[in-house]
Each structure stands twice: as structure tokens, then as C-alpha cells.
């Protein structure tokens, strides 16, 4: 990860799959588990986290030659806290309903270890462009996990998808809600904290299963190639 020859594509693959913050690194799980009880909440927190990660990664990389080791942690925290405060103020002004729905988890983005982790492990040693793309990739990876978990919990728990979309996208979006079945028939467990843990566990299992089957396929192909080569030699 420390070499500077990471292509943009490999950075994106890392963020979205191989090094996914939610499914592989298991970073920032507190907000991930707490706010993923509906698709719209997930989208709101996902966007706020993505934006914070982009800004903090870029700023840390821009100033990486001036930030020396002794004071790097307070400076990272300062940069991240400033970004989050600004996001919070903007959200209160223009998306008050969303601000109310996210509650304490918006200011708590400051403590999301994903963000300071990327600042320390990646952005502080890479070019601005690379740091920006890494922030984008990791943010999108986090966003994707939030969205999938939030959608699944909302559909299973209250039988709808994208309810309250107007909080985030304006009054036009109030018709986006899709009802699958009546709220009272929902599985309450999915909405409660245990549902979040179970849902994330299932997502981890599915990801590992996909990785394992990909690996088996790759191994088989390799084995066949080897055998073919041996036969050709004899």
C-alpha cells in the first residue's frame, strides 16, 4: 500500500471490495450499525462520511510535508473536526429533517476511525490525487455497505424502501417510497440493534463466500493450465 504506483482502478477496487472499510477492515462500525435502520438514513450518513473523508484525505495530503510526526494526530483531528462541524452546520440549515434523523451520529463522524485511519495510513504519504481517489473509494465502499444494510433492514423491518426520502431530497421525493407490505407485519428485530449485527454478519459471510468461490475458480484454472503444459511437454 505504501508504494506510489497505485493505479486509480486498483484504489477503487480496494475501497469497494478487497479493503472495504465496512466488510474487511471493520472500521467505523458504530455509526454503520446504529444509523443503518432505513435506506434514507444510510444515504444521509454515507454522503456525510464520504464528504468528510474526501476533504480530510485531500487536506492531509496537501500539507503532508509541513505536518511533522510529533503533532500529526492533533492536526488530523483538527482537520476532521472542522470538516464535520461545517457539514453539520450546512445540514442543519438546508436538510433540517435529515439532521434530526441522524442525531448524534453526525457529530460523531469525528470519531469514525476510518477517517483518521486513512489520514494516517494513506493520505499522509501519498500525492494529493491519490489521496483524493482513496478517500472517494473508501467513502464509496462505506456508503455501499451502509446502503445495502439500511435497505435490507428497512425492507425486512417495516416493509418499505426509501421512506422519508423527502427529508434528504426535498418534497418531490415523498412519492419515492415503495411499500412491500404493511408496517405492522415487519420483523421488528431487523430495526433493532441486534438486527444490525446479524445483517452485517450475513453481509460478511456472503462476501467471504464470494471471495472463496472466486479463489477456487482461479486455482482450478491454474491447475488445468499446469496439467496442459505438462502434457504438452511429454
Amino acid at each position: 500500500m505504501e508504494n506510489s504506483t497505485n493505479s486509480n482502478k486498483s484504489l477503487l477496487i480496494e475501497g469497494l471490495w478487497t479493503q472495504n472499510p465496512g466488510l474487511v477492515k471493520l472500521l467505523g462500525l458504530c455509526p454503520l450499525l446504529a444509523v443503518s435502520n432505513s435506506a434514507v438514513n444510510a444515504i444521509g450518513l454515507g454522503i456525510a462520511t464520504l464528504f468528510t473523508l474526501l476533504v480530510s484525505n485531500t487536506l492531509v495530503s496537501v500539507f503532508r510535508h509541513h505536518i511533522h510526526t510529533a503533532i500529526r494526530i492533533p492536526l488530523y483531528v483538527l482537520i476532521i473536526a472542522t470538516t464535520v462541524t461545517i457539514v453539520e452546520l450546512l445540514m442543519r440549515a438546508w436538510f433540517p429533517g435529515m439532521f434530526a434523523a441522524l442525531g448524534i451520529f453526525l457529530p460523531l463522524i469525528v470519531t469514525n476511525c476510518l477517517i483518521i485511519g486513512r489520514a494516517e495510513a494513506f493520505a499522509s504519504r501519498q500525492s494529493v490525487k491519490q489521496a483524493f481517489i482513496d478517500g472517494l473509494a473508501m467513502g464509496l465502499g462505506f456508503f455501499a455497505v451502509l446502503l445495502i444494510l439500511g435497505s435490507a433492514r428497512e425492507i425486512i423491518g417495516q416493509g418499505s424502501w426509501l421512506s422519508n426520502a423527502n427529508l434528504l431530497f426535498g418534497d418531490l421525493a415523498s412519492t419515492w417510497k415503495i411499500e412491500f407490505f404493511d408496517r405492522s407485519n415487519g420483523v421488528l428485530l431487523a430495526l433493532l440493534p441486534p438486527g444490525a449485527f446479524i445483517g452485517l454478519g450475513l453481509m460478511l459471510a456472503v462476501k467471504n463466500a464470494i471471495d472463496a468461490s472466486l479463489k477456487t475458480k482461479r486455482d482450478t484454472v491454474e491447475l488445468l493450465n499446469q496439467r496442459n503444459n505438462q502434457q504438452a511437454n511429454t
Binding site: 472542522t82 462541524t85 461545517i86 452546520l89 450546512l90 442543519r92 440549515a93 438546508w94 433540517p96
Partner: peptide, 17 residues
């Protein structure tokens, strides 16, 4: 930076509330 953002977003926040 925060003071600036606060200064220009405050009227909108109060109006929204």
C-alpha cells in the same frame, strides 16, 4: 473557517427551525 460558515448558515438554520 467555522465562524465564517456559521455566520452565513445561521439565518437559514433559524428560518428552518
Amino acid at each position: 473557517l467555522i465562524i465564517t460558515v456559521h455566520w452565513f448558515s445561521e439565518p437559514t438554520i433559524i428560518a428552518a427551525q
